[in-house]
Write a protein that binds this DNA or RNA. Structure first.
Length: 925
RNA sequence: GCCCGGGUGGCGGAAUGGCAGACGCGGCGGAUUCAAAAUCCGCUGUCCGAAAGGGCGUGUGGGUUCGAAUCCCACCCCGGGCACCA
């Protein structure tokens, strides 16, 4: 009977579900394992990337289950977000309808994967039963002063009509559409994630990939330094505070620069300079973040006419305004030390400002210049190296190293001096900003707050919670909530008319706690059932894409810490203790072990070779005929070459002489001999690069189609076998045949009626040995997320079974052990075929609840080993020796070897390195 | 510029400092077939050689070691992150 994936796979999926095989229930007598895959956004189609991310995650969960753990592996949907709203604006579909239809499609696609999801724990973030608790969490944050309303320069996206978090802005453009983002002063809701900056820098106790840790560390951007206060010269008693990581260079601060948005700027500006400053500030505000931070831009700036007093030496320094100083970092003002900071140096050179070196380089080459640095005209760049302080009054001569913070003696001395003299204080500054969570959108979690007429902002009372999104709204592209009076108009706690907050929350809020809602998606008294949380938390294994490094993964960490501090886990912890477990770090970090998969890219494809005749018109050719001909020769038509790109009726053809643009009028006949019937332009195949899959590039691989053709088991196996999982790479449509053959071979082996026609003990022992070697390899591979080597080891076992099966060389018992082991170890990877074969071979319970094969090192041990004989490190011979051969015996055998004798003949043996039973190396000359 | 990864056959990729290239794709040759597909068997880093065998070979150059894809130093290239962050 041939293997029919179509009937077998769907039948088992149904049966597993009917029997509740993947229902996971709290059982304090068994060790738990919470496996989690990042929850998908319901875009409407499960693409191959979802499979690539989720099937290994599923295989790992199944593996842990067979290893004896009570495994929870839930799934849900991150259902709020902009695409749903865009669909509403563009196509008139309500976001809820669009979202739920997509979820429905994706549910059935996810089922076709055959994953062990516990669907009874499914959570969908756009349901009031979910987002009501997101609102509740917001209120808790507000009550604990973690959420606050603040006015700040925020990223405003005119294209998206909303503000965005810093994390969502890349190179001055929004991460979604790539449209420019501008800075705007607005009053918005923030979370005090910066209060957790130091804790977020600590990754103790969690096993996360280094790159993710590095990215988060980078993003948080801790720098040690000092605030220094410069008194504003023209009276008023105002102080201009700066942040610096180099307080040791204070004596070299010869001017100051403030950001165009700095609040003291109007006060600092003199009347003579006011017009120029105002013009500069106006121009800066119009420029986008991208323009302001462009690399190659020459620094611009304007003198304010104001001065400040350098606290260390009382000198008056001019204050400039320039947009290279950012209002969002530090204090928005800097002391400029042109001698030792390249940016300040460039600015000083451009505007002819004073440069005073305060570090004498200690290198011989430099000191021999005889203090050449003092003659600042000769300087070509700022000096940032080590040396000794000079021109710095009390601190002259202190050693300057390249270390940061207090570890640098010069910085330590300067910090002490500042504090002793009341001129400043030691401080730590972060690049991380508070998390801006307001969005001027409809399809998100409402912010449960009310703006009273007297300006006070108060939370929606518990009795009116949750705030439910009104469904009957009009989509214009602006937030409909602000234009829906029934939603907008409320009464406050005093019974006075008030206005409801119409902004919704960043959708990253939803995904910052979803793994907690999975525990009990229908629990009505709290965000999660404390009993479930006590048993299952924390998440043991988390898998997903690395693109979330500084967004989701950072927010999720912040959330659990904030929730812990608000006491949200108190009940769960008490229950944990009752069961004799201690919370340890369970509520400090959300995900104990994190692994990231890479990305599947589009397959490379050669474009059609086309032969085109036509007439030149300007720099393009208007075609009169077009033929696809793989064998077309150079010169056989006016344009001959590979079709690189097609946009409507414009073709880009790569010819021997370069790229040619061809326009194909509607009435030109397109001939593609390989495609029967009338041919059209849309049938032409253009060249595909290896790049990200996207509909617009036409290089998307559809998993549904692959499942139909090969079956889910084959697709799963291929995805796990053909790539280094953490790396990903281009799709290769040919390679899947290898996995299909493997699955079919497993079917043949599993259904083979084995007869021991010529069994020998040796052959049987050898097969069992192979089985145990395989167990060892698969164990280690699965443990460390190396799916490709796990599959490779199983393929080797398949090869072994194939060859012994044909000869009937082993006992029936050995054969049977081999087949059982193969099926069990393959079960996490290919759940359907292994279940079918397991049952057909007499299994009464599911293979997925069987115990994982136990490795026996004695059975795995070889009794003879091929020993390599080297002369001077080069392999010259090989001999078979007993595995437990002694060093002397091994050496003797090596010396007795013919080839070795030949090669060492007449030479002096200097040394013999013996590593029995694997290797002997004879050093001779 | 700074911080992470990574460079191994035609391709995807294996290799606790000890036989480089497991496993698979592709390719070549053969069997089967009227033929093809499927299947099965064999070969497949490269150069020299009829063969036996040998030379070379893990981005480049150096080093440590009896022995290096693996460890150290310098450099080149690719991917990712950050970036006028004071």
């Amino acid at each position: 009977m041939a293997y029919d994936h179509r009937s077998i796979e769907s039948a088992w999926q149904k049966r597993w579900e009917d029997e509740g095989l993947y229902r996971s229930v709290v059982d304090w007598d068994r060790p738990k394992h919470y496996a989690l895959t990042m929850l998908p956004y319901p875009s409407g189609d499960l693409h191959i990337g979802h499979w690539y991310a989720m099937t290994p995650s599923d295989a790992r969960a199944r593996f842990m289950r067979m290893k004896g753990f009570n495994v929870l592996f839930p799934i849900g949907f991150d259902a709020f977000g902009l695409p749903a709203e865009n669909a509403a604006v563009q196509r008139g579909v309500h976001p809820a309808k669009w979202t739920w239809e997509n979820i429905e499609t994706m549910r059935s696609q996810l089922r076709s994967m055959g994953a062990m999801f516990d669907w009874e724990r499914e959570a969908v973030s756009c349901e009031p039963s979910y987002y009501g608790w997101t609102e509740w969490l917001f209120k808790q944050m507000f009550a604990h002063n973690i959420a606050y309303r603040g006015e700040a320069m925020v990223n405003w996206s005119p294209a998206l009509n909303t503000v965005l978090a810093n994390e969502q802005v890349i190179d001055g453009k929004d991460e979604r559409l790539g449209q420019p983002v501008i800075q705007k002063l607005m009053s918005q809701w923030f979370f005090r994630i910066t209060d957790y900056a130091d804790e977020l820098l600590n990754f103790d106790g969690i096993d996360w990939p280094d790159p993710i840790r590095a990215m988060q560390t980078n993003w948080i951007g801790r720098s040690e330094g000092a605030f220094a206060d410069f008194a504003v010269a023209a009276g008023s008693g105002e102080k201009l505070q700066v942040f610096t990581t180099r307080p040791d260079t204070l004596w070299g601060a010869t001017f100051m620069v403030v950001a165009p948005e700095h609040p003291l700027l109007p006060q600092l500006t003199s009347d003579e300079q006011r017009a120029a400053v105002e013009e500069y500030v106006a121009a800066a505000s119009k420029r986008t973040e991208l323009e302001r931070t462009a690399d190659d831009k020459e620094k611009t700036g304007v003198f304010t006419g104001g001065f400040a007093i350098n606290p260390v030496n009382g000198e008056e320094v001019p204050v400039w305004v320039a947009d290279y100083v950012l209002i969002s970092y530090g204090t928005g003002a800097i002391m400029a030390v042109p001698a030792h900071d390249q940016r300040d140096f460039e600015f000083a050179r451009r505007f002819g400002l004073k440069i005073v070196p305060v570090i004498e380089s200690s290198g011989d080459d430099r000191s021999s210049e005889g203090g050449g640095q003092d003659g600042d005209e000769e300087l070509t760049e700022a000096y940032v190296g080590p040396g000794r302080m000079k021109n710095s009054g009390p601190l002259d001569g202190v050693v300057v190293t390249e270390q940061k913070g207090r570890a640098n003696p010069a910085i330590a001395a300067a910090l002490d001096w500042l504090e002793e003299n009341g001129a400043g204080e030691e401080t730590i500054n972060y690049r991380l900003r508070d998390w801006l969570i307001s969005r001027q959108r409809y399809w998100g979690t409402p912010i449960p707050m009310v703006h009273r007429a007297d300006g006070v902002i108060e939370p929606v009372p518990d009795s009116d919670m949750p705030v439910v999104l009104p469904e009957d709204v009009v989509f214009t592209g602006r937030s409909p909530l602000a234009e829906t009076p029934e939603f907008l108009n409320v009464t406050d706690s005093n019974g006075e008319p008030a206005r409801r907050e119409t902004d919704t929350m960043d959708t990253f809020m939803c995904s910052s706690w979803y793994w907690l809602r999975y525990l009990s998606p229908n629990f009505a008294d709290a965000p999660f059932d404390p009993e479930e949380a006590a048993y299952w938390l924390p998440v043991d294994t988390y898998t997903g894409g690395a693109e979330h490094a500084v967004m989701h993964l950072l927010y999720a960490r912040f959330f659990i810490k904030a929730m812990r501090d608000m006491g949200v886990f108190a009940d769960a912890e008490a229950i944990m203790n009752q069961h004799g477990r201690t919370a340890d770090g369970a509520f400090h970090e959300p995900f104990m072990l994190l692994r990231n998969q890479g990305q599947i890219l589009g397959e490379e494809r050669v474009g059609d070779r086309v032969a085109i005749n036509g007439e030149s018109e300007g720099n393009r050719i208007i075609a009169t005929s077009l033929l696809v001909d793989p064998a077309a020769e150079e010169g056989s038509a006016q344009v001959v070459g590979e079709l690189m790109r097609r946009t409507e009726n414009l073709l880009r053809v790569k010819t021997a002489n370069g790229m040619v643009t061809v326009e194909v009028p509607d009435d030109v006949e397109v001939q593609i001999p390989a495609v029967p019937g009338d041919n059209g332009l849309h049938q032409l195949k253009h060249h595909l690069e290896i790049e990200r899959m996207s509909k617009s590039r036409g290089n998307v691989v559809n998993p549904d189609h692959l499942v139909e053709l090969y079956g889910a088991d084959t697709v799963r196996t291929y995805l796990m076998f053909a790539f280094e999982w953490q790396k990903g790479g281009p799709w290769n449509s040919g390679g899947i045949m290898g996995s299909q053959r493997f699955i079919e071979d497993v079917w043949k082996i599993g259904t083979f009626e084995y007869e021991a026609t010529a069994p020998t003990d040796d052959a049987s022992t050898a097969l069992i040995r192979k089985v145990h070697q395989t167990i060892d390899r698969v164990d280690h591979s699965m443990e460390s997320f190396k799916w490709n080597t796990a599959v490779a080891a199983l393929m080797e076992l398949r090869n072994e079974l194939n060859s012994v099966g044909r000869g009937g060389l082993v006992t029936v018992e050995a054969w049977s052990q081999g087949v059982d082991a193969l099926l069990k170890m393959l079960a996490p990877i290919a759940p359907h075929i292994t279940e079918e074969l397991w049952r057909s071979r007499g299994g009464t319970e599911s293979i997925h609840v069987q115990e994982w094969p136990v490795f026996d090192p004695e059975l795995a041990a070889e009794d003879t080993v091929t020993m390599v004989l080297q002369v001077n490190g080069k392999v010259r011979s090989r001999i078979d020796v007993p595995a437990e051969i002694s060093e002397t015996d091994a050496e003797a055998l090596a010396m007795a070897d013919e080839r070795i004798a030949e090669l060492t003949n007449g030479k002096t043996i200097r040394k013999v390195i013996a590593r029995p039973p694997k290797l002997i190396n004879i050093v001779a000359s």
